[in-house]
């Protein structure tokens, strides 16, 4: 019995020792921090794009900026998949997951459309797509805790 206990303890130790290399996202803080990073970069990338469209930043960066936004938009839904409440997210994100994920997918499609327009038609074409693409407020009004 003692030997069995020693074996079990050894096995448990080995499992813990190898855990950091294989475990993912078990910590709620990590999940929340990660999605905050994604949303922060979306916010900054959108502001950068708007500055270009308003003639306040170099138009040479238009495609880079629109493409960055498109790419980051594709990471947002995954960041919200773990049902971890907290941060700026309302519980409704997970309570109304079908609606939330439909909105996120529409955001992905809209930013893809915007990036394509920027590549093919420059600032003028992107200006025609930006309002339909950046529907941030539509989601934030429902799913984000209002900022104080």
């Amino acid at each position: 019995m003692t030997r069995l206990l020693q074996f079990a303890a050894g096995l448990a130790f080995a499992a813990v020792a190898t855990l950091p290399a294989t475990v993912h996202a078990t910590d709620s803080t990590d999940v929340i921090d990660y999605r905050k990073n994604v949303m922060k970069s979306l916010s900054a990338a959108s502001a950068g794009l708007n500055a270009i469209l308003q003639g306040k930043a170099p138009a040479e960066n238009l495609v880079l900026q629109a493409e960055t936004l498109r790419i980051i938009a594709t990471t947002a839904l995954i960041a919200f998949e773990p049902n971890v409440e907290g941060g700026d997210s309302k519980p409704e994100v997970w309570a109304k997951w079908a609606d939330f994920s439909a909105k996120m997918k529409a955001f992905e499609a809209g930013t893809a459309d915007l990036a394509k327009a920027a590549k093919e038609g420059g600032v003028a074409a992107a200006q025609g797509k930006v309002q339909a693409a950046l529907t941030c407020k539509g989601c934030h009004d429902v799913y984000r805790v209002p900022k104080k």
């Binding site: 993912h24 921090d33 990660y34 990073n37 922060k40 500055a51 306040k56 930043a57 170099p58 980051i72």
Partner: peptide, 26 residues
């Protein structure tokens, strides 16, 4: 403002990549 937005995007994306590298997120 523009260059600060670019640097903020870089900072948040780098932090996200760091979290993947340190296996904090999938």
């Amino acid at each position: 403002d523009y260059r600060e937005n670019v640097m903020k995007t870089l900072e948040a994306q780098t932090a996200s990549l760091g979290m993947i590298a340190s296996t904090q997120v999938p």
